[in-house]
Amino acid sequence: MPNSQLSTLTRLWPRRVIQAVSFFMLAEFSYYGIFRCPFAVPYVSCANCPVVQCPGKKLWYIVLIGIAVSALFFGRAFCGYACPVGTISDLFSSVAIAKRKISPVIKSIAQKGKYIAAIGAAYLFFAMQNPRWAVPIRTGEFINSTMLTFEHANWLWLSRTIIVVAAIALGLVIPYFFCRFICPTGGVLELFNRFSLFKYTMSSTCLDCDKCSKTCKQNTRPAEANCTNCGACKDVCPVDAISITTPFTKK
């Protein structure tokens, strides 16, 4: 095995461990948020949620604090390390059939979708007090309760859920479709990438060879849109222009 590949494996195995542990801990919470949460914006009104089976009633506050702290230190790293949907998208990207086939213009426009989604979620939560769009099924068998939620939800909840599921499934065609173009959490965390304490950046020695974006499953470069600070691109740089920087790093 070439040294570069060995170095990449050594660098990335902690991420795989974190992904596995986070998926084990948060996957059920994510499932409930998508398929059973009665609120317009899931994951943020768990204290008032009538769905007694949802693990979010115990996890939501810890998770939100964890996301906020990780954003301050590592920008959008939560998306690439701990988000269950991000982990599923990572798996889907391995078989996606349209890798790096989106034109730069279309990609630039589509990337604004997550900011629009974030603004919409903020409006629903703050201005409309996060309305309920589904009849809360308090308890019940796992699959049957999900089916009942779909049966009794209104068209707004159904539309939101179908869009989310379809966007995640599109990751089988376009890698990380939901994460790159739709996810409101990703849109909020993207703003933190600019100010986070630790992040991968490119130095002035960069040759613009684009090997980093070709290696990246999200087809981006360090410190640019959708970078999750995973470090997968570092060892492919021919001039070692990619490194972790902090506010105290000399430029």
Rank of each mutant, 00 (worst) to 15 (best):
S30G: 14
A134V: 04
F150H: 09
E224Q: 15
K99H: 14
N144T: 13
P247G: 12
S45C: 06
Y43H: 05
I88Y: 12
I174N: 01
T8C: 00
P14S: 05
A169G: 06
P50A: 07
P38Y: 04
Y200A: 00
W13H: 05
I88N: 08
P14V: 05
Q218V: 02
F74W: 15
P42R: 04
Y32H: 10
R36V: 01
H152V: 00
M202Y: 08
A232V: 09
L197R: 10
A47T: 05
P104V: 13
F39R: 02
A225Y: 06
Y43A: 03
R221G: 08
A121M: 08
R100D: 15
F181H: 04
A117V: 01
A110K: 08
L207I: 11
L189K: 01
F150E: 01
K217H: 11
F177S: 04
V52Q: 10
F29L: 07
A232Y: 13
G231Q: 01
P238T: 09
N229G: 02
A98P: 11
I109K: 10
A20E: 01
N193V: 11
I244N: 02
F192E: 02
A40I: 04
F23Y: 04
N48M: 09
S103P: 09
N3C: 00
L148M: 08
I102G: 10
I97Y: 10
S7Q: 12
T205P: 07
E28W: 11
F150P: 02
P238E: 06
A71C: 14
F74Y: 15
A117F: 06
K112N: 15
S203T: 15
V236C: 03
P104S: 14
A117I: 10
G171S: 13
F39K: 00
T249R: 10
L124M: 12
R194Y: 11
N229E: 09
V51F: 06
D240N: 14
G66T: 09
H152M: 05
P238W: 12
C49S: 09
K217F: 07
E190P: 06
I102D: 03
V164P: 02
A153Y: 06
G140W: 05
N193T: 13
C206V: 10
C212Q: 06
I137S: 00
I163H: 02
P175R: 01
I143N: 12
F178R: 01
L91T: 13
I102C: 12
V69A: 14
I67H: 05
F92S: 04
K199Q: 13
D235I: 03
F198Q: 01
V236T: 12
I62Q: 13
W13E: 00
D235T: 05
K57E: 14
D208S: 14
P38S: 09
A68N: 07
G75E: 09
G187D: 06
C83D: 12
V52N: 08
Q19D: 01
P136E: 06
T161A: 06
G75M: 06
C79Y: 04
K57Y: 13
R15T: 14
